[in-house]
Design a binder for these strands. Structure first.
Lengths: 205, 205
DNA sequence: TGTACATCAGTGAACGCGCGTTCACTGATGTAC
DNA sequence: TGTACATCAGTGAACGCGCGTTCACTGATGTAC
């Protein structure tokens, strides 16, 4: 039987750290993720995490990569509810918004963090998310669309859903939405904006 | 002559703290604004700031309020370059983007910060910014527009410019823009998106 | 005009906090013979 | 199969860091008489 590192002491501390980190992320925010807090949460000495991550930044960027991977998966799952390219793009936008509502701190970690030189996995994960978005717009525009047009539409749709998501996460809409049913009102507004955006695309049959 | 508190020792430490805070904000980011750092910057003991602000949160929220006031002024200045309501709205959007480029940390402090119970000045300042945006959209839509329509258009245009601004600030466009002239390319894309948004509004003469 | 007093902005020492990181160590597990 | 050894995940004490905050104080300024 091949030797499995996972079987040494804790079992699989590295994996446990990442899982606990993603939980703690949504509970306490990015700043709440400290190597010591994670060690406490897992009942392990506070120096133990350093066996698996050289420093806190390495841990955070690994978490960000996983967050991006979850995000990309959510976008794909959303898209796959439909078959027509323009409807697929709309569903991707809806999935973007819903991910932001469900996992706000994930989005914050992904976008709002400074990673001076992101490790390959993070760079790849964020690039993959972008490519899903881009492919969705390209498909909705159809094969004839010129590159400049594609670029502009990718930018515009990304900015729209990202802005809506961020305004929600940051609570900036707090005073503009009804206190009861804020979430529902927000979803309605977002969905309507997405539909308007889709309508603005050139028709292609 | 009326007694002026400003003339005691430092001169006007409260005002100086706010001014230094806004400078430090753009140099070091929100996390860099500590009472001790500000005291060092002003050549004053590290306990001195507490004479003017009960705690760090009070200082930060005051800075956020000033940031919002600058932001509102920038939006107004942008708008006032034009007279036609739809052009005024476009200029406001452009001003939003340019403010984000010029003072990214201001925007981060304004939107990205948690103020559990914002003091009146901050609440008023952020509300004022929103009202400028809302008025701009209302004017561009014309007097006949129903409330629901107005609400949807305010949301959509805010989300669009805010999203573009945030993507830029967070560096998320780094890999999608040319390394040379990224700023110019970003402005071009933003401006085009704003024009598309304006074109989507119902015509009114 | 001069003096005694009150005010209060700024001082500097001190406290406790949680953090990241290092280090020699321990002991459980896997491996070689 | 059994024993000696190597590996290395996790330990726990320790270090230094900057931070916010408190406190009795000092001394410059303004005010009252």
């Amino acid at each position: 039987m091949p030797r499995r590192k996972a079987d040494y002491h804790h079992g699989d501390l590295r994996r446990a750290l990442l899982a606990a980190g993603l939980e703690l992320l949504e509970q306490e925010g990015v700043a709440g993720i400290t190597t010591r807090a994670l060690a406490r949460k897992l009942g392990v000495s506070h120096a133990a995490p350093h066996r698996h991550f050289p420093d806190r930044a390495a841990l955070l960027s690994e978490l960000a990569a996983i967050a991006f991977e979850r995000f990309t998966a959510a976008l794909r799952t959303g898209m796959d509810k439909e078959t027509r390219p323009d409807r697929r793009l709309a569903q991707m936008g809806r999935a973007y918004i819903r991910f932001a509502i469900d996992r706000p701190a994930h989005l914050r970690l992904m976008f709002n963090q400074e990673f001076p030189s992101p490790p390959p996995r993070l760079q790849q994960a964020s690039q993959a998310a972008y490519e899903v978005l881009e492919e969705g717009v390209v498909a909705a525009l159809g094969p004839g669309a010129p590159g400049k047009r594609v670029e502009a539409e990718v930018f515009g749709s990304w900015a729209l859903v990202h802005g809506a998501a961020m305004l929600w996460i940051d609570g900036s809409l707090r005073h503009q939405l009804p206190p009861r049913g804020a979430r529902a009102a927000f979803l309605k507004l977002s969905d309507a904006s997405i539909e308007r955006m889709i309508e603005g695309l050139p028709k292609q049959r």
